[in-house]
Each structure stands twice: as structure tokens, then as C-alpha cells.
């Protein structure tokens, strides 16, 4: 199976910590004979094993499930978050997508709200902060009525599920020319704001989560839709429009829901 390997001209961003300037390191000599069946992260594993053999510090990158659902992995590969293959996370991108001899640049997701921890690893806790601001239905364990007492029209449930499929990887932020997290925010909002369970807190939630998004230092949406193109789960920017609508209503109504 020798013809199933490729050599890459690989450049990986190395940065020892948030204070370090950082630079691209040329790892072409460590990226030879890479199996085309390997995933992108497995290619980095191989490079790391070879680096270690030379006594070099391995490349730090986040990853966990490696089946495209945990949302922990992510890097910008040749200018595109998660690489050029659509609807695919970095761990699901395979090396057969690359030509022998291809030049590959790997860089961390860049946004002020995602400071670099080391190399390709960034701190995305601002996403948690947004959810903590209101990304929940306030229901105590044990207080729930029977599940079938809240009928949800199938179309609504399906639409909510479309939004809830977000894996929180941050590719939308990385792809956005403004480093906005509007797609993430709107998906979180749409999931709960669509469902009957989410109605009582709908506008409070919208205001609070938007404020948390802005406070975290994310930019605003200018409707370029790069986020949608980069999203490994195909979350639609329609949810951003839906969020905007909710923001308008939230802005024009008081706490009791009356028009100001």
C-alpha cells in the first residue's frame, strides 16, 4: 500500500503561550509518508511522534472524541476553519483530501475572545459564558410535568433540532471576517426560543445572551455568511435572522411583554 502515502510541505503555528509572539514552523521533514487514510489529527499525531523522537516539543492541539461531535478540535487549515471540505470537523478531515506535495498551513482559530493557550489550542470559555447568561430553561430537577403534556409540533421540534445540532467548536467565529459568534449565539437562542418550553424566558434570554456575546469581545454580523460555509454541522444563518427578530421584539417590549 506504498502508493497510499503523501508528503506534505507542512507549516504549523507554534506559540508557547499567550505572551509569545508565535511563528510558523516548517515541519515538512516530519510530514513525509503520511497515509492518505489517516485523519488530519492522526497526521498531527504522527508528526508529534516524530518530533518527540527528535526531542522536540509536540504540537499542542485540542481534540477528544475524534468522531465530529464533541466540538473540541479545530484549526484553520490553509485559510479555512476545519479545512476545505464542507460539513467536516478537523478530526473527520482525511489526508486523501490533499495532493502529494501539497503545501499546508495550520493556524489556530483567531479571535480576541479566543486567546491562544498554546500552538493550535485556544480558550473558548467565552462560549460557556454566553450559555451561562441564559442558554437554559429554568426548570428544577423533579419539577417537570409528564413529557407528553407539552406537545411540540413536529416541524418546530425538527427546526429546534437543526439549531441544537451546534457542537460549539467555534469555527463560525474563526471564519467570520468580524470574529462574530452570531451563528453560535443564534443557534443556541433558536433551539430554546422555538420550543414551547423556552417561551417564558424568551426575551430575557435573548437580551442576556446577546449582552454576554458582546461583552466577550466578539464582533457583529455583517451577513457575509462565512460562518454557515464553515460550520461542520451546516447550521443556517436563517437562525441569525430569527435572532435579530427576537432582539427587535426584546428591545421594544418591557419585562412584562408590553410594547414600550
Amino acid at each position: 500500500m506504498s502508493d497510499d502515502t503523501i508528503d506534505l510541505r507542512l507549516h504549523v503555528w507554534r506559540q508557547r503561550g499567550p505572551g509569545d509572539e508565535g511563528r510558523f514552523a516548517d515541519y515538512s521533514k516530519y510530514a513525509k509518508r503520511i497515509s492518505t487514510h489517516a485523519s488530519f489529527l492522526e497526521m498531527l499525531d504522527v508528526v508529534n511522534e516524530r518530533l518527540a523522537a527528535d526531542g522536540e516539543r509536540p504540537i499542542a492541539f485540542d481534540h477528544d472524541c475524534r468522531e465530529g461531535i464533541c466540538g473540541m478540535c479545530g484549526a484553520v487549515i490553509n485559510g479555512v476553519p476545519h479545512g476545505h471540505r464542507t460539513l467536516t470537523t478537523t478530526c473527520q478531515l482525511h489526508m486523501r483530501e490533499f495532493q502529494n506535495g501539497a503545501e499546508v498551513f495550520v493556524e489556530p482559530f483567531r479571535a480576541t475572545a479566543f486567546p491562544v493557550i498554546e500552538d493550535l489550542m485556544v480558550d473558548r470559555s467565552s462560549f460557556d459564558t454566553i450559555v451561562q447568561a441564559g442558554g437554559y430553561v429554568s426548570v428544577r430537577t423533579g419539577a417537570a410535568p409528564d413529557a407528553n403534556e407539552i406537545p411540540v409540533p413536529k416541524q418546530i421540534a425538527d427546526r429546534a433540532m437543526d439549531a441544537a445540532a451546534c457542537i460549539g467548536c467555534g469555527a463560525c467565529v474563526a471564519a467570520c471576517p468580524n470574529a462574530s459568534a452570531s451563528l453560535f449565539l443564534s443557534a443556541k437562542l433558536a433551539h430554546l426560543n422555538l420550543l414551547p418550553q423556552g417561551q417564558p424566558e424568551r426575551y430575557r434570554r435573548t437580551r442576556a445572551m446577546l449582552a454576554a456575546h458582546d461583552d466577550a469581545g466578539f464582533g457583529g454580523c455583517t451577513n457575509h455568511r462565512e460562518c454557515e460555509a464553515a460550520c461542520p454541522k451546516g447550521i443556517s444563518t436563517d437562525f441569525i435572522a430569527r435572532m435579530n427578530r427576537d432582539v427587535i421584539v426584546a428591545s421594544l417590549t418591557d419585562k412584562d411583554g408590553n410594547l414600550i
Binding site: 437554559y136 430553561v137 417537570a144 413529557a147 406537545p151 421540534a157 425538527d158 429546534a160 418550553q197
Partner: peptide, 22 residues
């Protein structure tokens, strides 16, 4: 049975039938 009630109340978008039930 309580788990399903709890999850639905939290907004877990379980699959539904056309009648709106689970």
C-alpha cells in the same frame, strides 16, 4: 420515566410525531 420528563422540560428536542407527541 422521570428522566424523559426532565429532559423535555429542559428543551431537549426529542423526535416528535405529527401530533406533537414524542
Amino acid at each position: 420515566v422521570n428522566i424523559i420528563d426532565q429532559a423535555v422540560a429542559q428543551g431537549v428536542p426529542f423526535a416528535r410525531e405529527y401530533g406533537g407527541l414524542l
